[in-house]
Design a protein around this nucleic acid. Structure first.
Lengths: 237, 237
DNA sequence: TAATAAAATGTAATATTGACACAATTATAA
DNA sequence: TTATAATTGTGTCAATATTACATTTTATTA
């Protein structure tokens, strides 16, 4: 301790882990195993360790809970209300992660009493975790309107109707099927497969895959995935 | 200290203070008065205090250096490399502020040896401060493409040519005067004044003011201030 | 083989954008 | 006094993108 006269604070990382089950958005929560607020639902989190960065901590915590690595994750915001944790002042850095819900390893959930909740029906959480989730939702809405980020939630192969459900679910609205597919396909990000998905409809819908090269090179490009984005996005909390 | 077995860390706030002098973007830096890296240029910063939030700390630090309050400021990112500060591990939360450079109170700068630098010609700074500035530039480029944020840099009254210089400076490019003014004016954000600014040109250019009501209500609206935004924005560091 | 359900493709009207030209204003010089 | 020059303000048209809406295709099953 060489900067004298300054306080030192606990720094925690909290992970907002989002998935999509084909119908609706899901949020992975754990039942807190220790006081305070034991048994209450909470985001998965942990304290930063001496030799790791925040990002490394977030990756560590995500892996602990889901078994997943190489997952899309970004820093969301740092929360600092002096009384946000009643036990002791803790600065919390929130990260949000987008995972393919099917890759999630269930056996791990037992250790933490984890469960997927509908994002629309999030329970009351400890501390400021509900606020974090609100912010993550807004960030995702914003980013997904212009960048091909939602594909992190889908398996390798997906159909146009699945894609549309993904976008409609996020913005809680309906898009015109014809205009939607034209807009999406015009990005050139998708490669049509020869097989069809035939579980959900008689005719079956062609599978598509992401063109990985284009996906990487165009991730920052400014695409427009939805019409009238300003009417569908909300201010960050 | 009630969460046992966890380390506590210093938490600092660093402020990226940006201005525009009519010609180019400026960055307010201080000459560090204490070790390490004494005399080297640095962002203005400070440690968070026990009873304040990060945002309050940022506001406090900004006021200390500039005398300004009610300034546009947003949290940028939290930096956490364990070795970013060689003296002691410090987590740094960067904020960026947009100020009207004319309102800045010069007498204050003497205390901190502060100076405005051209953003294009930023000197080498301590720690990871150059990286913070890169990220702030990218964030500003991104946000300004769609939200009326740059007006925080201008005085109450401004002309269309000034406005265009503001945007051209940020994106380091030239826009067609006619298309630019059409796009900007079509947002309905501006109220034409009767007076002209006659310093810089023979003919003089009409002043405009922001329609404050619309500005507040449309701040989150999704406008498009520049053509081909994707060609002008860069990935965040 | 006809009916049905869902996916895929097509088209015309409208709105937005981008490229470009010309007119208006006024200090300064001829 | 008038011409010049520099800069601001406004206008037009073609190309492009978007929206709203209809029809055709595919495969199942009655």
């Amino acid at each position: 301790m060489k900067y004298s006269g300054q306080i030192r604070t606990l720094v925690a990382v909290d992970c907002i882990i989002l998935g999509f089950d084909g119908e609706e958005y899901k949020l992975l929560l754990i039942q807190r195993g220790f006081a305070p607020e034991k048994k209450k639902w909470s985001l998965m989190g942990g304290f930063i360790q001496p030799t790791e960065t925040l990002e490394e901590a977030a990756i560590r915590i995500l892996k602990q809970l889901t078994g997943l690595e190489n997952v899309y994750m970004e820093q969301l915001h740092t929360f600092s209300d002096p009384n946000r944790d009643p036990v002791e002042r803790t600065i919390a850095v929130a990260y949000f992660a987008l995972v393919d819900i099917q890759k999630y390893e269930k056996q791990i959930s037992k250790e933490f009493h984890a469960e997927w909740f509908s994002l629309k029906d999030t329970p009351e959480l400890i501390f400021d975790h509900n606020q974090m989730i609100e912010m993550a939702k807004n960030r995702l809405r914003y980013k997904a309107a212009f960048h091909p980020i939602l594909f992190e939630l889908l398996p390798d192969k997906f159909t146009l109707p699945q894609l549309q459900a993904l976008y409609e679910g996020l913005y809680d609205t309906l898009f015109d099927r014809r205009n939607f597919s034209r807009k999406l396909l015009s990005t050139g990000l998708f490669i049509k497969q020869k097989e069809k998905e035939k579980e959900t409809s008689k005719k079956g819908a062609f599978y598509y895959k992401l063109d990985q090269d284009r996906y990487l090179s165009d991730f920052q490009a400014f695409l427009k995935f939805i019409p009238n984005p300003d009417k569908l996005m909300y201010q960050e909390a």
